[in-house]
């Protein structure tokens, strides 16, 4: 197999991804200033002896992974999503998705994680239909944990009120996952589904699984806590609702759920958190 195609053309780096390392299947590592994709070939711009740079092409099939630097926009988008600024989050994500799209099939690409976050942001923004059309564009093979795709699929089903199907999917995910984050999110999904089905007791027990059994999964806690508060309030258990609200506004004060709790449960907000 022809592993590398040395080419001594010099390109401006317009539209290319910045510094990263290509790890070939034979263990060789290539530090590249930038990368571009042309069909089955990945071209790496590398420093050449005596200064200057040139491009070397590698067949995608020979690449084990590419170590792209983690895009800062990904974390920024997550922060924006968590604080309810969905449009801005989607813009940030587009800045990752578009340039990484040519490398989407290669391990180490940030395309799939960014796409998953895009679907999540669309869902949180209540744009379920767009989420539903976007999700199938992400092949399971491109995702480190395929359960995350099913999780989003189940969340979309909840928004569509296909609650029984969603519940079954969440159960199936939990049975096979070893990922605490996925399990915690699936419980939030079950809670949301049960609440939509007017089963406040089932909802409360599902939401509470998260803080009780997944204390380290703090990213999922705000959603679980606002869900707990809503379910407890629906059951008329003001004590439990107040406890959930208090935990939410003290432990996650800047979350979008804390803001929701302040609006939904003004009388349950502890006086020092008002």
């Amino acid at each position: 197999m022809k592993a590398a195609v040395p080419i001594c053309l010099f390109f401006a780096s317009l539209g290319l991804l910045p510094a990263q390392t290509i790890v070939l299947k034979n263990g060789q590592e290539i530090s590249a200033e930038s990368l571009r994709r042309s069909g089955p070939t990945v071209f790496a711009r590398i420093q050449v002896a005596g200064g200057g740079s040139g491009e070397v092409g590698h067949a995608a099939a020979t690449i084990e992974r590419i170590e792209f630097p983690r895009p800062a926009a990904l974390a920024e988008a997550e922060d924006l999503r968590v604080s309810g600024r969905f449009d801005e989050a989607l813009k940030r994500l587009a800045s990752v998705i578009d340039p990484s799209a040519p490398f989407r099939d290669l391990r180490g690409s940030w395309w799939a994680p960014a796409m998953l976050k895009k679907v999540r942001s669309l869902l949180d923004a209540g744009r379920g239909k767009e989420a539903e059309t976007t999700l199938p564009a992400i092949p399971k093979a491109f995702v480190a944990d395929a359960d995350v795709i099913d999780l989003l699929r189940a969340d979309i089903l909840v928004q569509k009120q296909d609650l029984a199907e969603a519940d079954a999917l969440y159960d199936a995910i939990r049975k096979r996952t070893h990922n605490d984050s996925v399990a915690a999110q699936s419980w939030v999904g079950t809670g949301t589904s049960r609440l939509a089905a007017q089963d406040a007791e089932g909802a409360l027990l599902a939401f509470l699984r998260v803080p009780v059994l997944y204390p380290a999964e703090t990213n999922t806690h705000p959603a679980a806590l606002i869900g707990s508060a809503r379910a407890a309030a629906a059951l008329g258990d003001q004590t439990e609702a107040a406890a959930a609200v208090e935990q939410l506004v003290t432990a996650h004060p800047s979350s979008v759920q804390a803001a929701q709790a302040r609006r939904e449960f003004p009388t349950l907000i502890p006086s020092n958190e008002k």
């Binding site: 409360l204 027990l205 509470l208 699984r209 009780v212 059994l213 407890a232 258990d237 439990e240 406890a243």
Partner: peptide, 21 residues
């Protein structure tokens, strides 16, 4: 054990979560 602790703290729902688990 954790369920009993939650129960004794008066947090019955949390106790149920652990018993269900």
């Amino acid at each position: 054990r954790m369920g009993r602790s939650w129960y004794e703290l008066g947090r019955r729902w949390q106790a149920i979560v652990l018993n269900r688990a």
